[in-house]
């Protein structure tokens, strides 16, 4: 199984600027026409500083490919089985967020095709003032490939 010593492993903090285009492309990919994420004037009229990101955007933003690669998952197949997000406030275009990811848990579970590893990754995004903008928890099931 995956090494339990991965638990607690943290990635390096990195900072991302949320651009309008990222939000629009994300909303288009989902096919979600809500004006809050497609039309800046509507977002501002609703009291936001800019285009708002759809709720699931946070999880996408936090996905740190480099961190995942650093975990050395080998040839395992990764299946995303659960996602939780808590929001301190909505993510809006123009945000500069500093994101840090860590492995919160590793477990082994019996699956139909043999034992699987279940990896829980937590990400936290803060704004430059240090406020938590969101926390995200992704449960990944790893099947040995």
């Amino acid at each position: 199984m995956l090494d339990r010593s991965l638990v607690g492993r943290e990635g390096e903090a990195w900072t991302v600027e949320v651009e309008r285009g990222m939000i629009r492309r994300f909303a288009e990919a989902v096919g979600d026409p809500n004006p809050l994420w497609n039309d800046e004037a509507s977002a501002r009229a609703a009291g936001h500083a800019g285009l708002v990101a759809p709720p699931t955007f946070a999880a996408a933003l936090a996905l740190d490919e480099r961190f995942r690669q650093s975990l050395d998952l080998g040839t395992r197949l990764i299946l995303h089985s659960e996602q939780q997000i808590e929001y301190g406030r909505p993510v809006v275009a123009g945000d500069r967020l500093t994101i840090r990811s860590k492995v919160a848990d590793v477990q082994e579970r019996a699956g139909a095709s043999g034992p699987m590893d279940v990896l829980l990754i937590e990400d936290e995004a803060r704004d430059p003032q240090g406020n938590v903008v969101f926390r995200s928890r992704s449960t990944l099931v790893l099947r040995r490939g």
Binding site: E82, Q83, Q84, Y87, P90
Partner: peptide
């Protein structure tokens, strides 16, 4: 437009 505080899903 109400504020979402938590959102989770299981696949």
């Amino acid at each position: 437009g109400a504020r979402v505080r938590r959102f989770g899903a299981r696949f």
